[in-house]
Simulated scan of single mutants.
Amino acid sequence: MSDLSHIDAAGRARMVDVSDKPVTARTARAVGRLVCAAATLDLVREGRTPKGAVASTAELAGVMAAKKTSDLIPLCHPLALNKVKVEIVEDSGLPGFAISAEVKTTGQTGVEMEALTAVSVAALTLYDMLKAVDKTMRIEGVEVVTKIGGKADFGIA
C-alpha cells in the first residue's frame, strides 16, 4: 500500500509531503462540455434565459471554485494561484457549450485539480441556471489536456 502517494504504510490517508520538491512554474488546462437542446442554446444566444447571463456567471463560478479546490478535495494542497481563466464558448455542433480552464501557479505541486474543479463547477453552474428550460442536458468530457511543470509535461501543442 505504501506505493500510493496518498496512503501511508498503515493504509491511512495522508497529504503528500512536497516540501523537498523544487518550486517551478506550473500550468494545467482542462476542458469539458455541457450538451443541451438546440432550443436551449438559442435561448442563451438571444438573452432570454430565466436566470440571466449564464455563461459569464458560470465563468466566474469556475474561477471561484479553482480558488477553493483544497477545501473541496481531501488531501489537495492549498495553492496561491497566479492565474485562473475560465472560458465558455457556445458550440452549435454539440449543441451546447465548450468549457475550458487554464490555471497557473509557481509552487511545489501542480494545478490539475484546480483546472478540473474550475471546469466542473462552471459546467454545474450552467446546468443549474438552465435546468428549468432543459431536462436533457448532460455534462461530459471533463479532462486535463495540458500539464506543464514538475516531473512530466503532457499535452503541449
Rank of each mutant, 00 (worst) to 15 (best):
V54I: 08
A38M: 06
P78R: 00
R14S: 10
R45I: 02
R29Y: 03
D153Q: 06
T125F: 05
A123Q: 05
S92D: 15
T49R: 06
V133E: 10
D8T: 13
I88T: 07
G11K: 08
V35E: 08
A98D: 14
K135G: 04
G32N: 04
A61R: 01
E112P: 11
V86W: 01
K131D: 09
K68V: 10
L79Q: 06
V35C: 09
I88Q: 00
R33H: 12
D91K: 02
V31Q: 02
K135L: 06
K21H: 00
L130C: 03
L72G: 08
T57R: 13
V111F: 00
A25I: 07
R26N: 10
A9R: 13
T136Q: 15
C36V: 14
N82T: 12
V63L: 11
A65L: 05
E114H: 00
I156L: 14
A37Y: 07
A39L: 13
A66D: 03
K104T: 08
R45G: 14
T106I: 11
A65C: 11
G141W: 00
E46Y: 05
L79W: 04
A122H: 00
D20E: 15
L34M: 01
E46L: 14
A118F: 02
S120L: 02
G110K: 08
V111M: 01
R33I: 07
G96C: 06
P22S: 02
A152H: 13
F97H: 04
A98V: 11
M129F: 06
D91Y: 07
I99E: 09
T24M: 03
T146K: 10
M137E: 03
K147S: 10
A122L: 08
L124D: 07
L75R: 06
S70C: 13
A118Q: 02
D3T: 15
V44I: 10
T117C: 12
S56A: 15
E59V: 13
R138V: 11
G47E: 03
A9M: 12
R33V: 05
F97K: 01
